[in-house]
Write a protein that binds this DNA or RNA. Structure first.
Length: 670
DNA sequence: GGCAAGACTTGGGGACAGTCAG
DNA sequence: CTGACTGTCCCCAAGTCTTGCC
C-alpha cells in the first residue's frame, strides 16, 4: 500500500488493482487543477441579470426576460459561441434537416402507453388520486440566545430560526467559504431588519445555539427504546397516507412526498449561491396535479389555498413548486422508483441503448469519416462524439453565471485538455457535482491532430485562450439534434447508458469464459467477479466517492487484526509441530489443531480480501452505475446462468426497482 | 427557429437502522 | 450487550433533454 499512487486518477486505475485514492473534487482551496478555474470566458457573461438583491421572498417578477442580448458583436458567422448565444445561425451552414417527427409513432401505440415518453404530450394516466404533500413542522423557538459582541441578543422566532440554521452548520466546511458566509449574512441581515444591534457576522457567536443543538441530538439519542418506537410509530401513522397514490386504480408508491424544510442552501463545489436562505414553502407555493374527479388534498394551513390545482394527464408529477433559491428551477413530487411510470421509462431507456448498439458500427464509421471533413463544425462534432462514445462523457450544456462552474463534453475549455506525446491527451476538468475528471487517453491520430488545432485557433483562425471553448462551433443541443438524424430518440446520454451496459455485459461474459473448466467458484467469489466488472463500469463513468472519514482508522484496525491472526496461526503451527513429535495418543489433538489451523487460514484469507477490496474501492462508488446505467437484465441473466441468488447483487430497493427485469432468459445478452 | 420553461434522470452525501464482533 | 461498522434510504442538488411558445 504505497502512498505513491495517491494521485492516480480514478480512470487510470482500472487495471491497477491496488491503486489509491484520487483527489475527488478539486481540493478545497488548494491545488485546483489549473484547468478548473476559469475566469470570465466571455462566454455567457453577458446574458445574466446582475444578481438582483435576491428579490426578497415572493416572486415579484418572473424569471421573465433573463435574456438581454447585447453581445452580438457583429460578425456572426464564425462567431465563437460566446456571441452565438443569441443568434444561433450555424456558421458553417450545413443545413441539417429536421429530426423525423416521432410524434406519430408515439401516439400511434397509445393504448399501451409508450414507456417514458410523457413529453410528447401523450396521456400518462386516466385517473390519479393522492393526498398531496406532507409539510415539515412549523418552527418551534428554543429561546437560546446567541451572542453579539459577547452579549446575549434577543431574536424573534423568525430570526432565531435562521440563526439556528447557521449555528448547526458550525462544523461543516461551509464555514470556511467566504461566499457561503456572505450569502448567509446578506439573508440574515435582511431578516434582522435595518436597525438591529447585530451589525456584522464577525461579532456573532452562535455557540450557545450550537451547544443547544448538540444537547438536543444527544437527548434524542439517549431516549429509551420505547420512547423512540412510539415516536416512530406516530410519525409513520402521520405519513402513511402520503406514501401512496392511485394511478388508474393501481396503488403506486410516492417518491418524495415531503416538502423540503427551510434551511441554508448547500450547493456543491464553488456554488455562487451557497449559504442563501431557502425559505419555507407553503401551500400557496404548490401546484397539485390530480384527477378531475378526485378530492383536492388537504393541508394544515387554514387561511391558504394551493397555488393551483391541475389535471394534466400528460405528466407524471403529483405536485411541484418553484425552487426558492433559483427561480428557474422546480421541485417535483414524483412516484417512487418502483412505480409503473418509472419502470416503464427504465425499460425504454435500456431498449433505446440496445437500439444504439445495433447501429453503433455505422455511427462510429461516420464520425471517423468526419474527422477529415472540410467543414470545421462537422469535424468538431465528430471529435466530441468520439469522446462521448469512447469516454462516456456527459453532454455538457450551457450553464449560468450563478451556478457552479462545471463542464461536460460540449463545454470543455481549451485548458481542460492537454496534448501529450504519443497521441495521448490529458483531460482535467470538473464535471457534474464538481467531481473532478482526470484521465489520460490515447486517441486516434486524426483526433489528436484535430485537437491540436481546436486548442490553438477557432474556425476563423483566431487564436484561442485557455478559457475559450474547445468546441466553439456547436453546443449540446446542436449535437443532440444531429443525433436525432442518426436514430430516433438518440441523444448524448444514450451513449453513456449503452457503454456502461455493454461493458458490464462484456466483462461478465469474459469472466465466465475464463472460469470455464476451472474449479467451481463459491458464490462469494462469483460476487467478487461481478464487483470487479461493476467497478470497471463505475470507473468508466467516473463515479467517485470521497474516502470515508474512518477509512484510515478502519484499515489500521484490519491490519492489526491480520497481525493478530497471523500470530495465532504461528502459535497453532508450533503447537502442532510439538504435538506431532509427541506420542500417538495425542492424535486427536493433532487433528483438532490441524482443523484449527485450516480455519485460521481461511479467516486470514477473508480478512485479506476484505482489506484489499476496501482499499480498492475507497474512492469508487459502485451504486450509481447499478442504479442508473447497467441494464438489470444483464445482471439477472448472469445470476441465473451462474446460480447466484439475485439478492446477492441487488438489495431490496433495487429488487423492487428492477422487478420488470426479473423474468429475463438466462441467455439474455445486452 | 431558437430559447427557455418544464419535466424527468442522475448523483453524492449523510442520517439512520440493522448487524456483527468483541 | 454494546459500540463500531455497514448497508439502506432519504435528501435534494445538478444534470439532461424535449416541447411549447414567441
Amino acid at each position: 500500500m504505497s502512498d505513491s499512487e495517491d494521485d492516480v486518477p480514478l480512470m487510470q486505475r482500472a487495471a491497477a488493482p491496488s491503486a489509491k485514492s484520487t483527489p475527488k473534487t478539486a481540493p478545497k482551496a488548494a491545488a485546483k487543477p489549473a484547468a478548473a478555474r476559469p475566469q470570465s470566458n466571455g462566454r455567457k457573461a453577458a446574458s445574466k441579470k446582475p444578481e438582483t438583491e435576491d428579490e426578497d421572498d415572493v416572486e415579484s417578477e418572473e424569471p421573465a426576460s433573463s435574456s438581454e442580448s447585447e453581445e452580438e458583436s457583429d460578425s456572426d458567422s464564425d462567431v465563437p459561441l460566446a456571441s452565438r448565444r443569441k443568434s444561433k445561425s450555424p456558421s458553417g451552414g450545413a443545413k441539417r434537416k429536421r429530426a423525423t417527427p416521432k410524434r406519430e409513432s408515439a401516439s400511434a401505440k397509445r393504448s399501451k402507453r409508450e414507456p417514458g415518453s410523457s413529453k410528447t404530450g401523450q396521456v400518462m394516466w386516466k385517473t390519479l388520486r393522492h393526498c398531496g404533500v406532507l409539510f415539515p413542522p412549523e418552527y418551534e423557538p428554543h429561546g437560546v440566545k446567541m451572542l453579539y459582541d459577547g452579549r446575549p441578543v434577543d431574536l424573534t422566532p423568525d430570526q432565531e430560526e435562521v440563526a439556528t440554521m447557521f449555528a448547526v452548520m458550525k462544523d461543516t466546511d461551509y464555514m470556511n467559504k467566504p461566499i457561503f458566509l456572505k450569502n448567509f449574512w446578506d439573508g440574515f441581515k435582511e431578516i434582522l431588519g435595518r436597525n438591529h444591534v447585530i451589525k456584522s457576522l464577525d461579532k456573532c457567536d452562535f455557540t450557545p445555539i450550537y451547544d443547544w443543538h448538540i444537547a438536543q441530538r444527544e437527548a434524542k439519542k439517549n431516549m429509551s427504546k420505547e420512547e423512540k418506537d412510539r415516536l416512530k410509530k406516530e410519525r409513520e401513522e402521520k405519513e402513511a397516507k402520503y406514501k401512496v397514490a392511485y394511478v388508474d386504480g393501481r396503488c403506486e408508491p410516492v417518491g418524495n412526498f415531503r416538502v423540503e424544510p427551510p434551511g441554508l442552501f448547500r450547493g456543491r463545489g464553488e456554488h455562487p449561491k451557497m449559504g442563501k436562505i431557502k425559505r419555507r414553502v407553503y401551500p400557496r407555493d404548490i401546484t397539485i396535479n390530480i384527477g378531475e374527479n378526485e378530492a383536492v388534498p388537504e393541508h394544515p394551513y387554514p387561511g391558504q389555498t394551493w397555488k393551483e390545482i391541475k389535471h394534466d394527464h400528460t405528466v407524471t408529477w403529483l405536485a411541484y413548486w418553484k425552487d426558492t433559491i433559483s427561480s428557474k428551477d422546480y421541485k417535483y413530487v414524483f412516484l417512487g422508483a418502483t412505480s409503473t411510470f418509472k419502470a416503464d421509462s427504465d425499460l425504454a431507456k435500456y431498449e433505446k441503448a440496445r437500439k444504439l448498439k445495433e447501429i453503433i458500427v455505422d455511427v462510429r464509421r461516420n464520425y471517423e469519416r468526419d474527422w477529415d471533413s472540410s467543414d470545421h463544425r462537422k469535424r468538431q462534432m465528430a471529435v466530441a462524439l468520439y469522446f462521448i462514445d469512447k469516454l462516456a462523457l456527459r453532454a455538457g450544456h450551457e450553464k449560468d453565471e450563478d451556478e457552479a462552474d462545471t463542464v461536460g463534453c460540449c463545454t470543455l475549455k481549451v485548458e481542460n485538455i492537454e496534448i501529450e506525446a504519443d497521441n495521448k491527451v490529458k483531460f482535467d476538468f470538473l464535471g457534474k457535482d464538481s467531481i473532478r475528471y482526470e484521465n489520460v487517453v490515447e486517441v486516434h491520430p486524426k483526433v489528436y491532430k484535430n485537437l491540436e488545432k481546436f486548442r490553438r485557433i477557432d474556425s476563423t483562425g483566431k487564436k484561442k485562450q485557455g478559457s475559450d471553448q474547445l468546441f466553439e462551433t456547436f453546443d449540446a443541443q446542436d449535437l443532440n439534434k444531429e443525433l436525432k438524424n442518426i436514430m430516433d430518440g438518440l441523444s448524448v446520454k444514450v451513449f453513456r447508458t449503452y457503454n456502461a451496459s455493454i461493458t458490464l455485459d462484456r466483462l461478465l461474459a469474459e469472466l465466465e469464459a475464463s472460469k470455464k473448466g476451472k474449479a467451481a467458484q463459491t458464490v462469494d467469489e462469483k460476487k467478487a467477479d461481478y464487483d470487479i466488472a461493476n467497478k470497471e463500469v463505475a470507473i468508466l463513468c467516473n463515479h467517485q466517492r470521497s474516502v470515508p472519514k474512518t477509512h484510515t482508522n478502519q484499515m489500521e484496525k484490519i491490519q492489526e487484526k491480520l497481525q493478530l491472526l497471523n500470530t495465532e496461526l504461528k502459535e497453532l503451527e508450533e503447537e502442532l509441530a510439538a504435538a506431532q513429535k509427541g506420542k500417538s495418543d495425542k492424535k486427536s489433538s493433532v487433528e483438532s489443531l490441524q482443523s484449527k489451523i485450516a480455519k485460521k487460514k481461511q479467516a486470514i484469507f477473508k480478512v485479506e480480501l476484505q482489506a484489499r477490496s476496501k482499499e480498492d474501492l475507497k474512492t469508487v462508488a459502485l451504486g450509481t452505475s447499478k442504479i442508473n446505467y447497467m441494464d438489470p437484465r444483464i445482471t439477472v441473466a448472469w445470476c441465473k446462468r451462474n446460480d447466484v441468488p439475485i439478492e446477492k447483487i441487488f438489495n431490496k430497493s433495487l429488487l423492487g426497482k428492477f422487478n420488470w427485469a426479473m423474468d429475463v432468459e438466462p441467455t439474455f445478452r445486452f
